[in-house]
Simulated scan of single mutants.
Amino acid sequence: MKLYYAETLAPRKTCAVAKYLGLPIDYALVDLTKGEQSKPGYLAINPNGKVPCLVDGERIIWEADAIISHFAQRAESDLWPRDDRQIDVLRWFSWNSHHFYPHAGALYFESIIKPMFALGGPDSSKVAEEQGMFRKSARVLNQQLKGRKWLLGDGLSVADFSVAIALPYAKKAAMPLAEFPEIQRWHDQLNTIEAWRNPFPVRSETSGTSAANAALHA
């Protein structure tokens, strides 16, 4: 399996699940600062021009949530439930995409992505607006976590890896996480997992870029 990734939010969840499951992955770094995601070679794999993207034999899978579900199924892991909780996984994937992630991601963009791409500093009015929307969605998540160890109950699932993905950057991105004790407790549990804390493959600055360039132009 070859995973095209960058060290940003959506690829982070795929790298974390792959590492957690101990899967044999050939990692190909896509340098977003150089626009490698828009090169013809990469667009032939993922016409959306986004990361991550997985090539598993003849199968190509876009979208991080689909990729982590594929990883769990391929590994025959309980991260992908084998009962009616599958519907709950899809529900939280959808909820996260439409409610929580857009606002957590916007805060991440203002404080982390903008400096990375020399787009200036955070827009204070945008940050305040997104913090308000973050709080609205976080209240729903905080309530869901009451009385549950993980998002779906007693067992860790791909839903946890998906929904929490922006939280490692909460402090840097001015997310008001401290206002939500159940979310903080849940993320503290995730932080006990090495693959969550350090999901990205170890690489040198030159070898990682060279590998990605070779993959993109093969």
Rank of each mutant, 00 (worst) to 15 (best):
P176H: 10
E58W: 01
G22P: 01
K171P: 03
D78Y: 07
D88T: 07
P40N: 10
R203F: 03
K2S: 03
M1T: 05
G121W: 08
D160M: 04
L90A: 14
Q37Y: 04
K172Q: 13
P52Q: 04
F200Q: 10
L177N: 09
K19H: 06
K39T: 11
S69R: 03
R148N: 15
F134L: 12
Y42F: 15
R139A: 09
F161V: 10
L152R: 10
E205Y: 02
R59A: 14
R91L: 09
C15Q: 04
L79Q: 02
K146R: 13
K126M: 09
Q143P: 00
T8M: 11
P40F: 14
W80Q: 04
A164Q: 08
S69Y: 00
S207K: 12
D84K: 15
H98I: 11
I68V: 11
S125N: 12
H217A: 14
I87C: 09
S94F: 10
I183R: 05
K34G: 00
A6S: 14
L32E: 03
V89W: 07
A128Q: 14
L152T: 08
W92G: 00
Q184P: 00
L156I: 12
A18S: 11
L152E: 10
A128Y: 00
Y101Q: 12
N213S: 15
T206H: 07
S97R: 10
C53H: 01
